[in-house]
């Protein structure tokens, strides 16, 4: 693997006395979908939230080691968290559109980062909604409340909202676990399109999903990365017997 988009070196995270991540060394390739799998509480979400520093907001958190985005230490002194979060977008498990119109939801991010004209915003809103494959469904009602959308639409809206600030990396924390199968399929198709322009890291509980959508997979267990390889290899020839047991459904 060449120089990764996101690289961690000896990353250790503690929540109080709970050692949540142990010596994680990972290099995430650019423009691929990387899946993080593993049983609940194994540290995959913790790892995800480290990349955009959302972990900073947790009380009693202690972060050791290094995380690099394009070679720059994101916990280093020169890193502006606002800039970082513009470059590293996030989609949550529960769709969380803001209580405002669809338009304002999408425009929320761009408005934070710089002053934009109405025409520019219009263009960003349309482009983002198209990218998230929801434009056709909402183009007639851009000024309606985003809370009236269905669950699957809400999630695609949230993806569009994250894309509106043109991030480089997209973090997704079990983005389909609250969705029905049809919406799940739509989001998965979306991932395959989006990886051409973005580096995507997706946490999933669903191993079939990891196998379907991802190029690389990392298997987390009790805070450690047990195995990290291309998805094809990890699922067909796992080297660690814990990986083999997990992907064959023996636990988790």
């Amino acid at each position: 693997m060449t120089q990764g988009k996101v690289i961690t070196k000896k990353l250790n995270i503690y929540y109080g006395s709970n050692h949540a991540l142990k010596d994680v060394d990972i290099s995430i390739r650019r423009n691929v979908v990387t899946a993080l799998i593993g049983p609940s509480g194994c540290g995959k979400s913790t790892f995800l939230k480290t990349i955009n520093r959302m972990n900073d907001l947790v009380d009693n958190v202690r972060i050791e080691g290094k995380v690099y985005l394009d070679g720059a230490d994101i916990y280093g002194r020169g890193m502006d968290v606002t800039r970082l979060r513009k470059r590293v977008g996030m989609v949550f498990q529960q769709p969380n559109p803001f209580p405002m119109s669809i338009y304002d939801n999408i425009a929320y991010g761009p408005r934070i980062h710089e002053r934009k004209s109405k025409a520019q915003l219009d263009e960003i809103v349309e482009r983002s909604l198209r990218q998230a494959a929801i434009w056709e469904e909402v183009r007639e009602g851009l000024y309606q409340s985003a809370l009236r959308l269905s669950g699957g639409q809400k999630q695609r809206l949230c993806i569009a909202r994250a894309l509106a600030v043109e991030p480089e990396v997209l973090l997704m924390d079990e983005p389909t676990s609250a969705l029905d199968p049809v919406s799940t399929l739509k989001v998965e198709e979306l991932l395959c399109h989006l990886k051409k322009s973005y580096t995507i890291v997706v946490v999933t509980h669903n191993m079939q999903q990891a196998a379907r959508v991802s190029d690389d997979t990392a298997f987390f267990l009790a805070g450690e990365v047990v195995e990290y390889d291309t998805t094809a290899r990890l699922f067909s020839h796992p080297t660690d017997k814990r990986t083999r047991a997990y992907i064959s459904g023996k636990f988790g």
Partner: peptide, 21 residues
């Protein structure tokens, strides 16, 4: 809580998040 983390994850400052959301 999801509104807060949603806004913060987009790079909003805390005060901006409070004011707008």
């Amino acid at each position: 809580e999801a509104y807060r983390s949603g806004a913060l994850s987009m790079g909003a400052g805390r005060w901006h998040m409070i004011r707008t959301i």
